[in-house]
Design a protein around this nucleic acid. Structure first.
Lengths: 163, 163
DNA sequence: AGATGAACGCAATTATATTGCGTGAAACCT
DNA sequence: AGGTTTCACGCAATATAATTGCGTTCATCT
């Protein structure tokens, strides 16, 4: 789950395991083995191997943000005044301290970031947006507020892929 | 994990459980109970209750897309020609069939979507972008390609929140 | 005070995870 | 070809964990 070593050669069974765990990360190994068509011990060994090689980075419960009081999810495209690495990294470090920032992607072209944030309500969202706008080195802020999400799949497609 | 009924009153222990499972969704109930400060049976009952009430929507393995051959992750802001509900829903249905589309968010303002996609390589990315550009009712396409992701947290902040 | 309901924890049971080991198939020499 | 090494499998045994049943406690309500 952590060591992140080198590349493995994955076969059909490994892909099936990855697909199943991507779908239901809490499935028992017995059930997983049944679906993969092998017995539990080798199935568990494969899972461990995938974890140790970094193909599986972790497991997470998918919680309902709305029910937990986070009414708003929004994306922000942030443009910085500089493309210098030190400035980019400073910005990443700046938002790293905000619990509301759930994702931070550096975007091609230099000096731009796409953030995903959550907020408890509109006032909170405004506060966060303002904080970004007023942040040092931030030149431009574009907010994309989510109205509804029709799809939110975890991971990657697990069909027809190489090893 | 499915029934999605009404709202619950969550206490400190529930929040701790949610926080822990958000962080490590495959933790054993014994360990979870230890961290939550209660014994395993009531801990399991709480987890079931959270699942059944929809606070936990599922569990997923977090796989390494890059290692699995999905070299590129990118976001696309799509503008449609119309804001009519039928058109919006048709677009959602259109992309719902693409395995490369991992997220589809309708954005405030009407007629806009933010998609997250993965692609095996640059050619594949171009193909996907072209397919979107040429899609019926699509008026505008803006691609935001991810260079690197410094943060990708699942779920929501679990501190200082209400029930 | 007595009744009611909710949540706990213990103890017992059932199921799962994990380890050790022998076996067979395929790849690899020589 | 024959011998050897490697690798993954599955069985069987053991260690852990999940789950259930039940009695107790505590807070609330009447």
């Amino acid at each position: 789950m952590q060591t992140e070593t080198d590349a493995l050669i994955l076969d059909e069974i490994d892909r099936k395991i990855l697909a199943e765990l991507q779908e239901d990360g809490r499935m028992t190994n017995v059930e997983l083995a049944r679906r993969a068509g092998i017995s539990p011990p080798p199935c568990l060994r494969r899972v461990r191997r995938l974890e140790e090689a970094g193909y599986i980075k972790g497991y997470h419960a998918d919680t309902d943000g709305h029910k937990l009081g986070w009414q708003i999810a929004f994306f922000v495209v942030v443009g910085l005044e500089s493309q210098k690495l030190s400035v980019l990294e400073a910005f990443e470090a700046f938002v790293a301290g905000w619990p509301e920032v759930r994702e931070c992607h550096m975007i091609r072209g230099g000096g731009d970031f796409l953030l995903k944030l959550v907020a408890r309500d509109a006032a909170h969202e405004n506060q966060l947006t303002q904080r970004l706008t007023n942040a040092p080195t931030v030149a431009r802020v574009q907010t994309l507020q989510t109205i509804r999400t029709s799809r939110a799949l975890s991971g990657v497609p697990m069909d027809r892929l190489h090893g």
